[in-house]
Design a protein around this nucleic acid. Sequence first.
DNA 1: CGGCGCTCTTTGATCGATCAAAGGCGGCGT
DNA 2: ACGCCGCCTTTGATCGATCAAAGAGCGCCG
Lengths: 345, 345
Amino acid sequence: MADRVGTRLPTVVDVAAVAKVSRQTVSNVLNSPEIVAPETRQRVEHAIAMLGYRPHASARRLRTRKSSTLGVRLDPVQNGISGAVLDRFLHALTEQADAFGLRITLFTAADQRDEVRQFQRLMDGADVDAFVLTSTTLNDPRIDWLADKGADFVTFGRPWGRDLDDPACRWVDVDGRAGAAEATRGLLERGARAVAFLGWPLVSGTGNERRAGWREAMTGAGVLAPRDLAALDLVTEDSVPLATEVVQRLLRDGVEVDGIVCASDSLALGALMATDSRIPVVGFDDTPVADAIGLSSVRQPVETIAGAVLRLLRTPTVDGAPASAHELVQPTVVWRDGRTRLSPV
Amino acid sequence: MADRVGTRLPTVVDVAAVAKVSRQTVSNVLNSPEIVAPETRQRVEHAIAMLGYRPHASARRLRTRKSSTLGVRLDPVQNGISGAVLDRFLHALTEQADAFGLRITLFTAADQRDEVRQFQRLMDGADVDAFVLTSTTLNDPRIDWLADKGADFVTFGRPWGRDLDDPACRWVDVDGRAGAAEATRGLLERGARAVAFLGWPLVSGTGNERRAGWREAMTGAGVLAPRDLAALDLVTEDSVPLATEVVQRLLRDGVEVDGIVCASDSLALGALMATDSRIPVVGFDDTPVADAIGLSSVRQPVETIAGAVLRLLRTPTVDGAPASAHELVQPTVVWRDGRTRLSPV
DNA sequence: CGGCGCTCTTTGATCGATCAAAGGCGGCGT
DNA sequence: ACGCCGCCTTTGATCGATCAAAGAGCGCCG
């Protein structure tokens, strides 16, 4: 316990000496306790506690050829608002990784090509033995590369454009479709009739899912004719001013709207400004901004996602078809009373 | 280059064989190129490139007893808004760490006591050989512990309550005083006369610095009598609704205010709502929220800070007094036109 | 009583790199 | 010619753990 600076840290040999067993037995107590006789085990455990022994991570990694470390890319702060989900996810992942005996090391990359280069680097140095990818895109080159190399990885986000049931690429994602549908139904229940959807251009798999959820809920409710629905289907890039513009144009055209479901909180913010906060709006991702201004938003359960990612990583990848190679988790809508009014100056 | 899965990665021995030198020479080319004859070096470098060799990180760490890894605590998402600076900082740190040959591993902790426990764990496992602390507090127990152990660390945030010049605890911080002063002067230049300050209770070193900056600028301008200044010095916890309340009370009391400098964007948001966005407000930390609603804010140059932290870490700690054991960097005010009006519903 | 199987523990080798120190060799002074 | 020095390269040992296989102790059976 008394470990002055400079004193060598205890090793298996030290523990073995104290417990009067061999170093391998100490190792066994740590890695496969069940094969050690109870009495011996207790003696070793006592010695370990006594010396405050901790296995030397690098030595173990060298021998086992496993780093027990996950590589996670820290994405560049995008628009600054939507990055929040990934931050929450990273936090949840870090918190839970410990329980799985995993560590997390970060890296950054300028783009997807650069990210692949980083993968190579980290794998070559045996720094990490698995990756967690976020923000998957359509035909994501990173996934192809990793799958091709036979690397161990799980994505947060579906591998859009690939076979979703392929056990070679395991993934966890949020059911954005269900989330958008619930948000839409929520607005309808609160008295809205013409609920619009403001989302991203079609290249985004995530965005399309959310749009589909809205369409499904609207069609299911049967409050509008298909042609009226088409007019309420808005598209723009993820930016506050652009969203404001699109919604203002809709209102100027005299289209009836009494609720808007958005694919992100940024878009929702823009929509709120366009409508002077007079129409209920629901955002997506429940970012700090939504909380601060009292905007309703669809919340992704990052803790659940992180847990699922880690569980999938633990299941072997080469073995016969794993029970589940992916998981779709359900989001929930956080309803807020919109206690702040936003309007353009 | 052609590295099929399962093929053993090349080692120093493989490189040595190809280059027709010994393993140690290969090691020398990597670690002290200057002692290797140019011709030999070139041959080795060629072999390295040819085989796509990368040193095995764990093996190197085992031998050198250095992990070249920084431990960074991923703070719990606090109010959700102010955490943004730390996220930006973490990103900058990760990006630049690479150039210093350092990796970053994350960990979480419930509180400061728990964080110390994590320090111990990581040091025992030789997982990291230095820490970067964030969010320092008055008489921070973490700093005492690390300094006592002689651990290698640098804090982002001054070690409040300790000798700031003590080379044993190196730190980097933003000159919040200068930032607040500049924000205040900016408001005065823009025509304001009675600029208020909304900050945190006195226990916060950071908060007090910012308050001092405001006071300094106001006194320097000489636009108000000291007693009038005291009335404009507002205090509350870091929360949007509490900020709204405090500012509303001030207005109700009939105090003249035509500008407010806040210790955080959360407080600024609350202030904006209280004043119906009619009085110019400046926040602190330039969070995504500020950007989204067009709020002016004092921006901390996280890239500069990250660079300074890494530079300080590189300087040895035991050696004779290092040139500089700390660094104070200057923030800048990002002026925005407040294109969004916020008001309570 | 020898042999066999079982459970538990020990021994020798190894992972891939670096440290410390020894070795080879040409040049130069005496 | 000899020896010494510097420069560069090689050799042997080591970091701390785990793997693979051998060894010890014991009970049971023929």
